[in-house]
């Protein structure tokens, strides 16, 4: 009987040891976090960069430039 109790306590020991293991895992996770944040920041930078750029791209071709090409094209035709 006593032996049974002993063994069940022994069995419990490894279960109790899971706590330090968990906290070790947590520690590992938190150590990894800055690198993960770095990637998130990189992704956000990329998004913002493209959003800023596309904001201009989406304005299309201002008349000024269409007119310019027409004018330059016209003067070319006159020459030839």
């Amino acid at each position: 009987m006593g032996q049974l109790t002993m063994s069940s306590e022994e069995e419990r020991k490894p279960v109790g040891q899971q706590k330090p293991m968990e906290s070790a895992a947590n520690r590992k996770k938190s150590e990894v976090k800055p690198a993960k944040l770095g990637r998130e920041v990189q992704a956000r930078l990329g998004q913002q960069l493209r959003a800023m750029y596309d904001d201009v791209v989406n304005q299309g071709v201002p008349d000024r430039f269409a007119d310019l090409v027409n004018r330059l094209d016209g003067s070319n035709k006159d020459k030839h």
Partner: peptide
């Protein structure tokens, strides 16, 4: 000017502006 050249020049304008800004 060749029509395809003219088109490709104009097509590049929006991105050129974004780059220039």
């Amino acid at each position: 000017m060749d029509e395809s050249v003219r088109k490709s020049v104009l097509a590049a304008v929006p991105s050129l502006r974004a780059f220039a800004i």
